[in-house]
């Protein structure tokens, strides 16, 4: 558990995650108020990474639920293991026969079987999916619900029960309460508006592209092999690209990929040739690449 905000930032830092003061505050609040965090922001600014670092910093397992269109309760919560139930029925046939050996009528047999039916709908045959795993875990976990904006509205509504009471109902077993309240992080890339009700239950964290200095720190930490002046230059170029009117702006993860590419290529400096050759690491659309090349061509003198 974190002692204070500085502790949060320090321990996340040791997991190689540079947390801004804002992130530190929100994570600390999430812990002390026991509320989920909803992290929004452009793709690739380290929202998912935050969950991983958070879990590692508090030494807890991370349970991840990736959302997509069409995700429903059975895939997120639990499934009955039909195959295992079938297998057990086959194997236990003799025992079943013993149980039913002295009955006279069909009705009596059905009744007796009904008494035993709990065997087949017990936790033995329950296949927990991420949400149930997080609730039933013997130790507290960090639950990451990734890209919630991709899931359907019904799923969002279903999540409300889980997130506010930390319990779910399985019709055959009854209501399952969380043994330990998990710490929850939801991420959204903002492809659609989330419902008010869900937002109300969460602490809101907007993760934006980092400032020049912050990004430089990240690059230095994650790609220590890149020479400092090259790192400086690389980050400056990325920031310049972000100011352009592009279809998809380069994110931190792309900056890091590019920095690694520069190391791998053994580049001594970022000259125009290296830049043109590696630009596709940063930009993922043909039109963007062309636009950036034009811009770099005009101001070529600024990149020695």
């Amino acid at each position: 558990m974190f002692k204070d905000i500085a502790d949060v930032r320090g321990r996340l830092g040791r997991q190689q995650y540079i947390a801004s003061e804002e992130i530190g505050t929100v994570v600390y609040l999430a812990q002390s108020l026991c509320k989920p965090i909803l992290a929004e922001g452009p793709a690739g600014v380290g929202k998912t990474e935050l969950a991983k670092a958070w879990a590692a910093a508090v030494g807890r397992p991370l349970v991840r639920l990736q959302c997509y269109e069409g995700l429903d309760e059975s895939k997120a919560l639990y499934e009955w293991e039909y195959a295992k139930q079938m297998l057990y029925t086959q194997l236990l046939r003799d025992t079943l026969q013993n149980v039913l050996s002295d009955v006279q009528s069909l009705g009596e047999a059905a009744n007796r079987l009904a008494q035993e039916e709990d065997v087949f709908f017990s936790e033995n045959f329950l296949l927990p999916r991420p949400l149930l795993t997080a609730l039933m875990s013997d130790e507290p976990v960090v639950l990451l619900i990734d890209e919630i904006d991709r899931a359907d509205v019904e799923f969002e509504a279903f999540l409300l029960e889980v997130l506010s009471d930390f319990q779910v109902s399985v019709p055959e077993l009854g209501t399952i309460h969380a043994k330990h309240q998990p710490m929850v992080l939801l991420t959204s890339n903002n492809t659609r508006e989330l419902s008010e009700a869900l937002k109300r239950r969460c602490l809101y964290l907007y993760v934006d592209y980092p400032t020049h200095d912050a990004e430089l720190n990240i690059v230095r930490l994650k790609v220590p092999d890149l020479r400092p002046e090259m790192a400086q230059q690389a980050v400056a170029i990325v920031h310049q690209l972000r100011n352009m009117d592009l279809r998809k702006l380069p994110s931190i993860s792309e900056t890091l990929d590019w920095a690694r590419a520069l190391v791998t290529l053994n580049a001594d400096s970022i000259d125009e040739k290296t830049l043109t050759n590696t630009l596709t690491v940063l930009l993922k659309y043909e039109a963007d690449v062309a636009k950036a090349k034009r811009m770099m061509g005009n101001g070529g003198s600024r990149y020695p």
């Binding site: 905000i5 929100v26 600390y28 002390s32």
Partner: peptide
């Protein structure tokens, strides 16, 4: 939970809880 002594912290704790957009 966080007090009001640190102005930035105070500001961020209000923002995270009140503003969701």
């Amino acid at each position: 939970a966080l007090g009001i002594a640190e102005k930035n912290t105070f500001r961020e704790s209000l923002r995270a809880t009140l503003v969701k957009e």
